[in-house]
């Protein structure tokens, strides 16, 4: 009965080949293809509305609002030079959001796969490191990992801080990918469990989780991009503000 509900309701999103273990290699890229097709159909529709001075198509209006939102977020967190990161942040937001939306209507989705989320996190953190090296130089960027300059026997402390910071940078990938995976895959598991609860009375109880899952889709895309902005801000703020000030304050934010 649970399988019937899974096939019959759009929320039966925990099925598929991989189930809790994620989709297969081919399955992941089929779903990624679905995401790309949906995304480009939407963007193509939105692009047709760009010709007007005032955007009248709803798709264009939505993307305009998203662009302004991302612009406010990047400029608010990173600063005036944050505008150049808008394309990356907006692309990340759209891919994650559409992928999350796909998870509402299909048995699985790219963001329900830890491997794909890790790829997103590696790109995000890798880009942050690249920007950090561009802003501070390779030596300058990695010297930030050692904290404030200490002399004498305290160099050992700097070494420890350096190792801890390196681990912290690696763990950023883990936290970004696991958070997204946990929320999307957790939503699937919750739907399956609630559908099984209602199987005896033929009620897809999991359907009622749709609003919460929809909220999760938006919030998770927001969190991922917001944290990327914060990480970029950490490595590019040194030229505008004091190192200790910027690092200390923003580190507390996450």
């Amino acid at each position: 009965m649970g399988e019937v509900l899974t096939a019959g309701t759009l929320l039966g999103a925990a099925g598929g080949e991989g189930g809790a273990h994620g989709a297969s290699y081919e399955g992941l890229f089929v779903y990624l293809g679905i995401v790309v097709v949906i995304l480009f159909l939407f963007l193509n529709s939105a692009k047709q509305g760009l010709n007007n001075r005032v955007f009248k198509k709803w798709t264009t209006q939505w993307t305009e609002q998203l662009y302004l939102f991302i612009e406010n977020m990047t400029v608010g967190i990173i600063g005036g030079h944050g505008r150049k990161y808008i394309p990356l942040i907006m692309a990340l937001w759209m891919i994650i959001f559409v992928s999350n939306i796909v998870s509402l209507f299909f048995p699985t989705a790219p963001t329900a796969d830890l491997s794909f989320n890790l790829a997103l996190a590696l790109i995000s953190i890798g880009y942050v490191q690249w920007e950090g090296m561009k802003a501070n130089g390779v030596a300058g960027h990695f010297s930030h990992f050692a904290g404030p300059k200490l002399g004498g026997g305290l160099v050992l402390i700097s070494l420890m801080i350096f190792v801890i910071e390196l681990i912290s940078e690696v763990m950023k990938n883990v936290s970004l990918s696991l958070r997204l995976f946990g929320n999307i895959e957790g939503g699937h598991q919750a739907v399956v469990a609630m559908n099984e609860l209602g199987a005896g009375v033929y009620i897809p109880i999991g359907f009622f989780l749709l609003p919460v899952k929809l909220l999760t889709c938006v919030v998770q895309a927001l969190i991922f991009t917001l944290l990327t902005c914060v990480y970029i801000s950490l490595v590019t703020h040194h030229e505008e503000e004091g190192h200790e000030h910027g690092h200390g304050e923003l580190a507390g934010a996450h």
Partner: peptide
């Protein structure tokens, strides 16, 4: 489930 191959391809 973590497949490095999927991660590399996704990147």
């Amino acid at each position: 489930s973590l497949d490095p191959g999927k991660t590399i391809s996704a990147i």
